[in-house]
Design a protein around this nucleic acid. Sequence first.
DNA 1: TATTTAATGCAACTTTGTTGCATTAGTTAA
DNA 2: TTAACTAATGCAACAAAGTTGCATTAAATA
Lengths: 141, 141
Amino acid sequence: MILFFSTFKLSYICVMGILRKTKSVKILLDEFEKQSTAISAITLIERFHLNMNKTTIYRILDKLEDDGFLHSFLGKNGHKWYAKCIGCTNVEHHDIHPHFQCLDCGKVDCLPTDVLIPNIPNRKVDVSQILIQGKCEECFS
Amino acid sequence: MILFFSTFKLSYICVMGILRKTKSVKILLDEFEKQSTAISAITLIERFHLNMNKTTIYRILDKLEDDGFLHSFLGKNGHKWYAKCIGCTNVEHHDIHPHFQCLDCGKVDCLPTDVLIPNIPNRKVDVSQILIQGKCEECFS
DNA sequence: TATTTAATGCAACTTTGTTGCATTAGTTAA
DNA sequence: TTAACTAATGCAACAAAGTTGCATTAAATA
Ligand SMILES: [Zn+2]
Ligand SMILES: [Zn+2]
Ligand SMILES: [Zn+2]
Ligand SMILES: [Zn+2]
């Protein structure tokens, strides 16, 4: 988890993640604070290409995921999406859940619902990524 | 569905799919006949780059999917995979199911098991793509 | 304020997949 | 068998998402 707002010396605490509270990090954190739905890396690049380089965006997202502040998954085209974690740490992500992508507006949300994966004979199930597609609240009327 | 082995005039029956029984089509069909697991487009390109161009491979896979002979899905990196259909037609694919990717050997299989997607309030569920990851029979010992 | 080094920008690259167009080769019918 | 038709192919160029190396910049610390 990000420790920005504490007064501790970050470098002693975080190992792989974000160590410095830069302008770029602040902009991205603010964006995820402002918007409750998931955001694709591509969208962030479009949105902030005047503020920062796409390399910077990819690198910050990567570190925020390491920190347990964001989690990532693939949308319907295999493109990367990010959303805020709830209660994850830099040791482990434990907020694994299905995602819902609207086929009309493209919006993606985290689903609090759990999907039961049945046991599969002779196989050890580790993780499962579930992307449900359909029409979201606004587009379904 | 592919009508290769019938004596009908294909052009009257197929509309969007494959019309001619070319060498490239035969090679790819044979490969899916030979191998029961799913095959990624990338693997096919590696395997047959001496026999045919990658453009040709992508185009044939696309048409075989239209024909209801293959179905496609995305693996863990968002790369495209194909596997044989069971009982699909050029009108509709009705063999939608989860897929299992081994994190050790990378192999992907179709799972006959059905996963129950719960109803989600205020949303119309259309399709769901489920990729389960873990260890396959051979790697799990 | 000077020092340290994490973070950044940039260009070049990689990988997967697509497009346009000239050429090749299945299929059909004479 | 042969000629005509056109689906299928190869090739080169392109597109989009994401990565890498390296010189430069700017947070954090003392
Ligand atoms: Zn998480
Ligand atoms: Zn989520
Ligand atoms: Zn199918
Ligand atoms: Zn399948």
